[in-house]
């Protein structure tokens, strides 16, 4: 079974070598695909020096665009499964096995920072992850809406630590949402295409390099945009006759 690691990287030259080294040690048989999202700090060179596949976008497309390219490449190259892994060191290689084990029971697995899963109060327990208050509120509203839209209770809709099997990979290769807050939309996309999506609790770390990609105004704008997607998209059909 061939496993692809899709890793979008925007100006992550500082953190990337460490992350790649850790991955090479933890999962040597997984093939890393770095998608350089128009970096200006030599991220592509760092990836090339580490000997991993690097796709260079001519300009910044945002995380969703970079992910879609990575999935497209993985699908074209015939990978059986893939998982997303952050280039900033936020994800812990020791948790990959946990994530991939989930694929035995589902088409897509989301690693949640909140350990409680389907049973109530998020934010406590071993993997507890601290987030700001307004962000927490926004995430709460999203959780609730996603639950209304999908019928599933996801605790961490914005988690970027996700694994997918081939059928989902093929869907994401062409249809992965490219706007900011892609993770929420991707969740809906997979569920609405009839794929089973589950969450597994994982530990995450503080990011090592780069900057958090959230500006408040931008966050607010895209929050509203996702609300519209969540409500307007319900029951609508696209040209292919597939509920999206």
């Amino acid at each position: 079974m061939r496993t692809a690691v899709v890793m979008p990287a925007f100006n992550e030259a500082e953190a990337l070598p460490g992350v790649l080294a850790e991955l090479a040690e933890a999962v040597p048989d997984h093939e890393v695909i770095v998608v350089d999202d128009g970096s200006s700090d030599g991220t592509a060179g760092v990836a090339a020096a580490a000997g991993v596949t690097c796709l260079r976008l001519p300009f910044n497309l945002g995380i969703g665009g970079a992910l879609r390219l990575g999935f497209r490449y993985a699908a074209d190259e015939g990978f059986d499964r893939a998982y997303q892994f952050d280039a900033d060191g936020q994800h812990d290689p020791s948790q990959i096995a946990t994530l991939l084990a989930g694929l035995e029971h589902a088409d897509m697995v989301v690693g949640t920072r909140f350990t409680t899963g389907d049973a109530g109060d998020p934010g406590s327990g071993e993997g507890a992850y601290r987030v700001g208050r307004s962000r927490n509120l926004a995430m709460g509203v999203l959780r609730w809406l996603v639950r209304r839209a999908t019928g599933h209770r996801f605790t961490d809709t914005s988690s970027g630590f996700r694994a997918l099997r081939r059928p989902v990979l093929e869907l994401f290769a062409t249809d992965y949402p490219v706007e900011y807050m892609d993770s929420v939309e991707a969740l809906l996309l997979a569920v609405r295409h009839g794929f089973t999506v589950i969450e597994v609790p994982v530990r995450m770390r503080e990011r090592r390099g780069g900057r958090p990609s959230n500006r408040n105004l931008r966050l607010a704008y895209h929050f509203v945009r996702v609300l519209i997607v969540l409500t307007a998209g319900l029951g609508r059909r696209n040209r292919l006759g597939v509920v999206v």
């Binding site: 998608v35 976008l57 001519p58 879609r68 490449y73």
Partner: peptide
């Protein structure tokens, strides 16, 4: 842009 990156 995707095509370009893949061709590259």
């Amino acid at each position: 842009a995707e095509e370009l990156a893949l061709l590259h």
